[in-house]
Amino acid sequence: MADNRTMAQMLQAPIEGYEDAIVVPPINANNFELKQPLINLVQSNKFTGRQDPHNHLRFFNKVTSTFRHPEVPNTSIKLLLFPFSLDGEARDWLDKEPPRSILTWDDLVLKFINQFFPPSKTTYLRNEITTFYQKPNETFNEAWERFKGLLRQCPHHGFSELHQLDTFYNSLNTNDQDALDSAAGGNFLDKMPREGLAIIESKSKVRYSRSRPNDSRASTNAPSSTSSPSNNSFEIQQMAALLEDKMNIRMSRLEKAISEKNATTPATVKAVEEVCVTCGSEDQISTLILNKE
């Protein structure tokens, strides 16, 4: 069939091919509309392609679950709202998807996750979980929160609950392993997985674990690693000079008191204890006992 259009008409931009990638099933419900407050709530946490896509889906599912219509499937509402939750790189990705290529909510989730959480990232996080270990200065609670964070970042890791608990238990230092064994009344791994998880959660509520390697008691008794011998010597000299000054002042006062006392009533000094040179406290100087003859 001959094309009777003029060249000018042929050079015009086409009016077809502008359909969206997402196909929303027909909605025949009466009085159905997306309320602006719901759209605003979805847009309050836009995904740009730089955040965790799993966290975005969790937030989106939570928001859309608050809106229900008896005649409209929740998946249709999600398909309508999801484009409003994207921005920047993520919005560009959706716009570049072929028209009418996303037919269901599951299709959208699959393409979204594969785009912003590639298999290489899954492999990396699985390795981080498998080789997890408690850091030298990390408390039990900090280690447990970090371990759960890795699991949450990769919800499709595929590790069973038993594998997770076994990995975490064997990653701990000796003190924290002993604490879990003690809480379990024996060997921690002899417990059922659910019981073991409850024990870990209970112990993690103690914010400061006793197993932190740098014990505060040791740090107060030991000299700082940043202090050089010369600095320590100078500080000791200063302390000694200060104590000597305090002793001289105190002894002068005592001698004056003795002289004044002898001028009126002869007395003898029974005992005078030495000053504590480690703390320099004036309270540790014994009271001068004067006895009348």
Rank of each mutant, 00 (worst) to 15 (best):
L172C: 08
S44Q: 11
K246S: 07
A183Q: 11
I39F: 08
A179M: 11
K62A: 03
K78F: 00
R194T: 12
E138S: 07
Y18L: 10
S65W: 03
D20A: 04
S227M: 15
E273G: 10
N248Y: 04
S216T: 12
I236H: 12
S286H: 06
H157Y: 02
R207W: 05
A241N: 03
L189S: 04
V277E: 09
V277I: 14
S225L: 13
P223R: 13
D181S: 04
P25N: 06
L80S: 04
V109A: 01
G186N: 00
A271W: 01
D176Y: 12
Q237K: 14
Y18F: 14
D181Q: 04
A21Y: 09
P193R: 09
F32G: 04
H69L: 11
N173M: 08
A257E: 12
F67S: 05
L180H: 02
E161Q: 15
S44M: 13
L197K: 14
V206M: 06
N262Y: 07
H69G: 08
Y169R: 03
S216L: 12
P118V: 03
K270Y: 06
E71Q: 15
E195K: 14
I200P: 03
S202M: 11
Q12K: 06
H69Y: 14
Q43Y: 01
P37M: 02
R250L: 10
R212K: 13
F112A: 07
N40H: 10
S252T: 14
M251E: 13
V272K: 12
T123I: 12
E293T: 08
L242Y: 01
M251K: 13
Q134S: 10
L189E: 07
P229V: 00
M7C: 05
V72R: 01
C154H: 01
K135G: 06
R58Q: 12
N187T: 10
S171P: 06
H54G: 09
P83R: 08
P37F: 06
N214Y: 06
V275W: 11
V109R: 00
F159I: 04
G17K: 08
G49M: 09
I249Y: 02
I258T: 05
S227P: 00
A183Y: 06
V72S: 04
T226A: 05
K46D: 04
N45H: 13
S281N: 15
R152Y: 12
I129N: 01
E255F: 09
E244G: 02
T104V: 05
S65E: 14
K35F: 08
N137I: 03
P155L: 11
I200N: 02
N248E: 11
F32H: 05
S216R: 10
F84T: 05
S211M: 02
N262P: 00
K46C: 13
N127Q: 15
N187I: 09
A267S: 12
L165K: 02
D245R: 13
L288S: 01
F159T: 03
L242V: 00
P73V: 05
E16P: 00
K261V: 08
I129W: 00
A267N: 07
N55M: 04
L108T: 03
D166F: 08
V109I: 13
F60C: 08
F47A: 06
K261A: 15
E260S: 08
V272W: 09
A184N: 02
P229N: 02
Q9F: 02
A29Y: 10
P26E: 14
T220L: 03
N55D: 12
S171G: 13
P229D: 05
T48G: 15
A222T: 15
E260K: 12
D166H: 12
A240I: 14
